[in-house]
């Protein structure tokens, strides 16, 4: 498989603040690659460097075979961008938004019209064609931004938090459309802080925090490799935990991760640990026993102090 985007030791600084702190990643053609991380982790800064709103400070960034410091127009012509903030043109209708965008790629107007109609249909917006953008709901606006990003038949679509702020139904619809794009062979690159989004869509992902990549792999691989398969989630603030809990849990071969508002006790044998809860001084009613998931990996890597 050929890689379409490759970053080597990539840096971005704003004054004293290092937003992206030496990251490496490689995205293969046709895959959906995710950047998972909390707000301010450096996800959006990385996206901005990819689509030409930020310069690369240090390191190497290669897009579609070309080494870049600021993404040039010829590369931008092959990208589709879905920014974090909807920046549709409120002075234009739904259809006109697509047509005005198509013009910048030099698409002839008759072709642009046919393509726009097709995209509006694909995104389920065909009945809204002549509506004002302002009259659209958040979910419809998001779908229009995605349709707009497809007008130039891009090789890569970059989506910065594509479903933030959408209700669950709208979110599932966007996911379904993104899966269809992947089936068409379009490479997707997305940032998100929704675990479900990452595990539903991404073939591979990186977990990023404070400008650094903490882990990389497929969602399943990350869950299976980085943490034990089961977890007992203790819904107590760290200040209300029984004293000596950490040591006693470790004696039981479990791995505690303490966050300010809850604690995870990772273990290969959940049932056995569950039976010990009262002896550990925990009330089973404030605990949940469940299989570990991607969110656990994420919280463990980005927020947990690993019981130390």
């Amino acid at each position: 498989m050929t890689s379409i985007i490759k970053a080597k030791n990539l840096y971005k600084r704003y004054g004293d603040f290092t937003a992206v702190n030496g990251i490496d990643f490689c995205i293969d053609e046709g895959e959906c690659f995710g950047f998972l991380g909390p707000n301010g982790a450096g996800k959006s800064t990385t996206m901005r460097m990819l689509y030409g709103l930020s310069r690369v400070d240090a390191g190497e960034l290669t897009i579609l075979g070309e080494k870049i410091s600021l993404t040039p127009p010829a590369i931008k012509a092959q990208l589709g961008i879905v920014p974090q903030e909807d920046n549709l043109d409120p002075d234009l209708t739904v259809m006109e938004n697509l047509l005005a965008h198509a013009r910048f790629y030099g698409i002839p107007s008759s072709e642009a019209e046919a393509k726009s109609k097709e995209l509006l249909e694909f995104m389920g917006l065909d009945v809204k064609s002549d509506d004002d953008v302002e009259s659209l709901s958040g979910g419809l606006k998001r779908r229009l931004v995605i349709a707009r990003a497809l007008i130039n038949e891009p090789k890569i679509v970059i989506l910065d938090e594509p479903t933030t702020g959408l209700d669950p139904a709208a979110r599932h619809l966007v996911w379904q459309k993104l899966r269809q794009l992947k089936e068409r062979g379009i490479s997707l690159l997305l940032t998100t802080h929704y675990m479900e989004e990452a595990s539903q869509l991404c073939d591979r992902l990186v977990i990023i925090n404070q400008g650094k990549i903490l882990a990389e792999g497929s969602p399943d691989w990350l869950v299976q490799t980085l943490i034990p398969p089961e977890v007992i989630q203790v819904n107590l603030p760290s200040t209300s935990l029984p004293t000596g809990l950490v040591e006693r849990v470790k004696e039981l071969k479990a791995h505690p991760v303490i966050l300010p508002e809850m604690t995870f006790l990772f273990t290969p044998a959940g049932d056995q640990l569950w039976e010990q809860l009262s002896s550990l001084g925990l009330n089973p009613r404030s605990c949940i026993h469940r299989p570990s998931n991607l969110e656990d990996v994420y919280l463990t890597l980005t927020g947990g102090n690993l019981g130390q």
Binding site: L53, A74, K76, P83, P90, F104, Y105, N152
Partner: peptide
């Protein structure tokens, strides 16, 4: 407010 410039910059426009 409208971020129209940003939208244009996502295309080959400079």
């Amino acid at each position: 407010y409208q971020k129209t410039y940003h939208a244009m910059l996502a295309t080959p426009a400079t």
